[in-house]
Design a protein around this nucleic acid. Structure first.
Lengths: 313, 313
DNA sequence: TAAAAACCATCAATGAAACTTATCACTATT
DNA sequence: AATAGTGATAAGTTTCATTGATGGTTTTTA
């Protein structure tokens, strides 16, 4: 049994296809086939059932694949250990960020990070929380930035900051006359929400849930971007909620419609999440340092009392 | 990096000697040397410092060795997984047993075990608790049987049974007239103990400690076997304590000197201990089943109330 | 239903790499 | 200073991963 064989098995398990797996492993198909066979011979079990297309994984195969992931991860960690020993921080690092954080947070830290750690090639992908989790578990992402707590198996969470919710309320809205608002003022039926799959939506639903039961109002408009929501709101379709960092970029006319919450302010916890095997932990720590530093230095909301609605569905 | 290379590194780390490590790995010394060098080249660090004899492990090397142990263990586990999937229980299994349990427990379960699992080649070694722990952590033992709780890192404990202590008190002893005895009657100064290193000794010292402070009496005789202790006791040198299973094998004349404890009876917890990586867990479970079955069926002390003095020094 | 495409296994050839024997260089011991 | 012990190096051999070509199935397409 070799680590290479295990990697081939993982590739086949992932792509469900020997030819494609071979390509992704940068070898020819016979090479990969033979090595997988050899491992199967050595272990005395079939890992894949090739009798039908697409191929399937046998029961024994599933367990072997799970263990192979362990081994390959642990093996990769050796290079990390050496890098850490040498104080070297570099290499490729793939980071996933959820859409509602991406546009505001990324510009704040990216420049600083690549300046401070020029040897790290940061690759950033926008993904929703579900994709993020799956890809971290698979090892396709080195880390992710998402709203927490998630409390998912194999995933560690390190909070970066707490980002308050801010109300966006047009003048003619029933709450338009208030100076500040509270969660109990909210009615899920007249809040414009991001479409399904955005965890920011779930956070708001939970926030309202604590007061009254959710039900379907007479109409419902959902969008994928805050910009649309704001414009709909201006048209009198209801209020909406924004994460604090998004409010910083609004024009003056829109800013005047912002209504802040009374303390304790509802907020979302934003964390760096990564596989508990802590692969490339030095870079992860470096990233956390940079982001925490930026947030501490540049943002004024760190002193307010917050409440954090659980992020679960 | 290959698993073989990691195994070579582990062998060198263990024997602190390339030549010996090569022998134990069943390859020639140049083979092992070159493979270790190759890994060092690939990682870009020296794992061993060969400039002085005996060779030493570098700082980076220590971490690499620790991680290599992980990887090799996890890799070995793959075969376990397959065996388990096939329902196969077999192969070599090395069990360590502490001296005060060895002579009584072994004959009780050994015959049953090898009959029930003929494909397992059981190798049994008598070792004290400290050796047991070290060897389990190193992977030189698949499991051990010892008095617990130990609560050692990386080691799991599965209690097998609770074995009461029984007093052996010659007729002319100050406690000779009593029908049953209690821990509070004990005086550490007139109890004959096994020599240092036997955990049964530590258990008794702890038992007595709870009542009065330990100090050195006017004389002290320590032996490595209960037989010596019993004979010394007959000579009027003091009383002693035996684990229950040992009392079953005494001759009638000695049996008459046994004094049982009032309930709750002091007892030692005897457990199967093994590495938390659960290598060969099927065999470990099989062993536990057999021993538990034997103990449940054949021994009469399972109903009495017991107290378990902590086993720590 | 027949033809084409997709896909995995097999084969023979090749080149890399793991391994061996023989030997050298260095260290520690006597 | 001599000797035994120990690891590195060199050259040759064997093993084995890899490749390109090909053949047999299964699935998809026409």
């Amino acid at each position: 049994m070799t680590i290479t064989q295990l990697q081939y098995v993982l590739a086949v398990a992932e792509y469900q296809n020997f030819t494609l797996a071979a390509e992704k492993s940068f070898v020819t198909q016979p090479t990969l086939s033979m090595q997988v066979q050899k491992l199967e011979d050595e272990l005395g079990v079939l890992i894949f059932d090739r009798s039908k297309k697409p191929i399937s994984i046998t029961e024994a195969g599933k367990k072997i694949v799970a263990q192979a992931k362990n081994i390959v991860n642990e093996a990769n960690r050796i290079k990390d250990i050496v890098d850490q020993e040498k104080g070297y921080i570099g290499g490729e690092y793939v980071l996933g960020v959820i859409p509602t954080i991406m546009p505001t947070l990324l510009p704040m830290f990216l420049r600083n990070f690549i300046k401070k750690y020029p040897k790290v090639q940061l690759i950033i992908k926008e993904q929703n929380t579900e994709e993020l989790i799956r890809n971290i578990q698979d090892g396709h992402l080195d880390a992710g930035i998402a709203a927490t707590p998630l409390e998912i198996e194999y995933i560690k969470e390190r909070p970066l900051y707490y980002e308050p919710f801010v109300g966006y309320i047009p003048e003619n809205h029933r709450l338009g006359s208030m100076d500040k608002i509270s969660p109990k003022d909210l009615d899920i039926q007249d809040i414009l929400l991001l479409q399904d799959g955005h965890c920011f939506r779930d956070g708001i639903i939970n926030l309202c849930k604590s007061d009254r039961a959710e039900n379907n109002g007479p109409f419902r408009i959902e969008s994928g971007s805050f910009e649309t929501l704001l414009n709909l709101s201006d048209e009198g379709m209801g209020m909406t909620l924004l994460p604090y960092l998004h409010t910083l970029e609004l024009g003056e006319s829109k800013k005047s419609n912002l209504k802040y919450f009374n303390e304790p302010v509802p907020a979302r916890e934003v964390s760096l999440i990564y596989h508990k095997s802590e692969l490339k932990i030095q870079i992860t720590e470096a990233l956390r340092d940079v982001i925490s530093g930026i947030v501490r230095g540049a943002i004024a909301f760190q002193d307010v009392k917050i409440i954090s609605p659980l992020n679960k569905k």
